[in-house]
């Protein structure tokens, strides 16, 4: 159930009670939702009751159009998963700016956790 597109990749690994999703590559398509949304619609229903770890630190670039489908995936995952832990690299400017909104939102979403290192 991995995501494999021209530049963007996500590897899904399942352990006992936990799921790890690691993003890699870069998302610079004009309409990245065409790739991310169908994939997330398959993955998210399998996350029910699990602890989900989503790691964006390996991403080289994420354009502005890519954030919304990823945000919707995280939002849907949070609805059914036990906990969703998002990891990004705060020392990279575009990553810091991209996930700053999530930092604000996480304050009102108890099972969404972020770490920026």
């Amino acid at each position: 159930m991995n995501l494999v597109s021209d530049n963007l990749f996500a590897t899904v690994t399942r352990l006992e009670g936990k799921v790890s999703i690691v993003f890699d590559g870069k998302s610079d398509r004009q309409n990245p939702g065409e790739i991310i949304t169908p994939w997330s619609e398959k993955v998210v229903p399998t996350l029910s009751g699990l602890d989900v770890d989503v790691d964006f630190r390996g991403l080289k670039y994420l354009n502005s159009s890519s954030f919304m489908p990823i945000f919707k995936m995280l939002s849907s995952a949070r609805d059914i998963a036990n906990n969703v832990h998002v990891r990004y690299d705060g020392s990279v400017n575009w990553q810091r700016l991209s996930f700053a909104s999530l930092e604000t939102i996480a304050k009102s979403w108890p099972n969404l956790h972020l770490s920026n290192h």
């Binding site: 919304m68 945000f71 810091r96 700053a100 909104s101 604000t104 939102i105």
Partner: peptide, 11 residues
């Protein structure tokens, strides 16, 4: 100076 808050249209 870093800006803070949330993007519009998300919630």
């Amino acid at each position: 100076i870093a800006t803070t808050g949330i993007w519009l249209g998300l919630v």
